[in-house]
Computed example of a mutant assay.
Amino acid sequence: MSIGAGVALFVIGAILVWGVNVEVEWVNLDMIGYILMGAGVLVFLLGLVLMMRHRQTETVTHTSVDPAAGQSTTRRSTSISGDEVV
């Protein structure tokens, strides 16, 4: 979501800088466009960094022999970022 928001901010800023030719006395639309473009780049890069973080995955396999039946029993569990899936 942050990657899309970064792209949207950049596009809106580019439209303000190069697509709008309106002079407003109380605000500089070019400066707001450049600020939005800079914020869009930062949000985009932050989204990429957060997406590229490595998730910690742990897989455990436990094999034991059932004493009553004499059969081996295997239990597998996988944990991703603290959430256990059995």
Rank of each mutant, 00 (worst) to 15 (best):
M1W: 14
M1S: 06
M1Y: 12
S2Y: 12
S2E: 14
I3D: 06
I3R: 02
G4R: 12
G4W: 15
G4S: 15
G4K: 12
A5K: 11
A5L: 14
G6V: 08
V7H: 00
V7Q: 08
A8G: 00
A8P: 00
A8R: 01
L9F: 02
V11L: 02
V11Y: 03
V11S: 06
V11I: 04
I12L: 10
G13R: 09
A14L: 09
A14F: 10
A14K: 07
A14C: 05
A14W: 05
I15M: 01
I15A: 03
I15S: 00
L16E: 02
L16R: 01
L16I: 12
V17E: 02
V17Q: 08
V17P: 05
V20P: 04
V20W: 01
N21Q: 05
N21S: 03
N21V: 01
N21H: 15
E23I: 14
E23T: 12
E25R: 10
E25K: 15
V27N: 00
N28S: 09
N28H: 11
N28K: 10
L29N: 00
L29G: 04
D30H: 10
D30R: 04
D30F: 08
M31T: 15
M31K: 12
M31N: 12
I32N: 02
I32P: 01
G33A: 13
G33C: 12
G33S: 01
Y34D: 11
Y34S: 00
I35E: 05
I35K: 03
I35P: 01
M37P: 06
G38D: 00
G38W: 05
G40M: 07
V41H: 11
V41S: 04
L42H: 07
F44A: 07
F44Q: 09
L45Q: 08
L45N: 03
L46Q: 14
L46D: 10
L46I: 13
G47E: 05
G47K: 06
V49G: 13
L50P: 14
M51S: 13
M52H: 15
R53T: 06
R55F: 05
Q56N: 08
Q56W: 01
T57Q: 08
E58F: 06
T59W: 07
T59Q: 11
T61A: 01
H62I: 01
T63H: 12
S64T: 07
V65W: 04
V65K: 03
D66H: 09
D66G: 13
D66W: 07
P67V: 06
P67L: 03
A68E: 03
A68K: 04
G70C: 03
G70H: 05
G70T: 09
G70M: 06
Q71Y: 11
Q71I: 04
Q71H: 07
Q71V: 09
S72V: 06
S72Y: 10
T73D: 06
R75A: 12
R75M: 07
R75F: 14
R76H: 02
S77K: 12
T78N: 14
T78C: 15
T78Y: 14
T78A: 02
T78L: 10
S79A: 08
S79M: 05
I80W: 03
S81K: 02
G82D: 04
G82T: 13
G82E: 15
D83S: 09
E84D: 13
E84Y: 05
E84Q: 15
V85T: 09
V85A: 07
V85M: 09
V85F: 15
V85L: 14
V86Y: 08
